[in-house]
């Protein structure tokens, strides 16, 4: 009995309730004519697409910089890498690898500047991060038009310059991970093995980092910066490092997302990416200064699971196509819920 109590205490009621809700959706699904295999498959794909962006929250949470509402900055680095890789005509697997490599210097430089900025505003990081996200997106809206890209598959056809709002990754890195070792069970279930493995690899590296001397220092800086300083840690350096890591993971995350989704979304695209990632990790049980890889996995699964299942189940019940509306309601509802959790966790 105490075992069960302890488990509930450590796992947390919110997760148990959301988990049970998700389970009940899967149980209802067959009765309203929804194919469970398809739903399951969708959930897993969405997990793989979003997982790394949720993981990107971890370093900054550990170093005490809070939730990375400035994730769009990392995503922009990823977009630069992706578009440059196409611009230079890399195709197939190489284009994905080059996208990662090309986005890395941007992520490092942008992350470094962003980190320096956050070090000057200790105590109100999250607000500033949100502004950084907004303004970087706005700035890039102009830059996407002005930068001298001229690859025909990316620029507006009539003008010959300026990038399009959506760019297909087909022929470049479309499904390079998802198709790797993928397998299907029955007609409706496919497992994107490569994408999940890639997530696992990055998550493992993150986990490993947190077990090194530097990683331990990062956790301590977030837990009590004064303690860390009194133990000889240079707090600002560690915080900057965490912001760079987070920004880089954001870049990698969006590339993985695009290779599965099939499109690069520019302009306002990065704008909508931070909140779902923030919510997922909070739903997974992280707080503003504590997060584990398990929080990432559980949170992404629950968030994406609900996001996949609720619209389709509701649709089938009420027999009208409201899926988009429901999806928006559910996702924002969960974001709202998660953000109220946030304040609870800080107490």
């Amino acid at each position: 009995m105490t075992k069960i109590k302890q488990f509930i205490h450590s796992f947390g009621w919110p997760r148990i309730i959301i988990g049970l809700f998700l389970l009940s959706l899967f149980i209802i699904a067959p009765f309203v004519g929804i194919n469970v295999s398809t739903s399951l498959s969708d959930t897993i794909v969405r997990f793989g697409m979003n997982g790394i962006m949720v993981l990107a929250m971890v370093p900054m949470i550990h170093s005490g910089c809070g939730l990375n509402f400035g994730l769009p900055l990392g995503i922009i680095a990823g977009l630069l890498g992706g578009t440059l890789s196409i611009e230079f005509n890399f195709v197939g697997n190489v284009s994905f690898l080059m996208a990662i490599l090309l986005s890395t210097p941007f992520a490092v430089i942008l992350g470094w500047g962003y980190g320096k900025l956050l070090n000057r505003v200790k105590g109100s990081e999250m607000m500033i991060a949100t502004y950084v996200g907004f303004s970087s997106v706005a700035f890039m809206c102009i830059m996407w038009l002005l930068l001298p890209y001229n690859h025909p598959s990316m620029v507006w056809g009539y003008a010959g310059t300026g990038l399009r709002t959506t760019i297909s990754t087909e022929g470049y890195y479309w499904h390079v991970l998802s198709n790797f070792l993928k397998f299907g069970i029955g007609d409706h279930f496919t497992f994107p093995t490569g994408m999940i493995l890639f997530f696992a690899l990055i998550a493992f590296l993150m986990w490993a980092f947190l077990h090194t001397k530097k990683g331990t220092a990062m956790t301590a800086v977030g837990s009590n910066p004064v303690f860390a300083r009194a133990s000889g840690i240079n707090i600002d350096k560690i915080r900057t490092l965490s912001v760079i890591m987070s920004t880089w993971l954001g870049a990698i995350g969006i590339l993985v997302y695009q290779q599965s989704f099939g499109f690069i979304q520019l302009y306002m695209g990065p704008f909508y990416m931070a909140l779902p990632a923030v919510s997922a990790i909070l739903i997974g049980g992280a707080s503003v200064n504590k997060a584990t890889i398990l929080n990432v996995v559980v949170g992404t699964l629950l968030f994406q699971g609900i996001l996949t299942m609720t619209p389709s189940v509701m649709n089938s019940i009420i027999h009208t196509d409201m899926s988009e509306v429901i999806r928006i309601i559910v996702s924002n509802g969960m974001i709202l819920y998660a953000l109220t959790r946030k304040s609870e966790a800080t107490r």
Partner: peptide, 26 residues
């Protein structure tokens, strides 16, 4: 304020400074 990582375990509290300064416990 200065002496403890209140949210971390005792083993971390005891070993952290020595780990970071003297490269012990690594």
């Amino acid at each position: 304020g200065v002496g403890l990582l209140l949210d971390e375990s005792l083993d971390w509290n005891i070993s952290f400074a020595a780990m970071q300064v003297n490269d012990k416990f690594l």
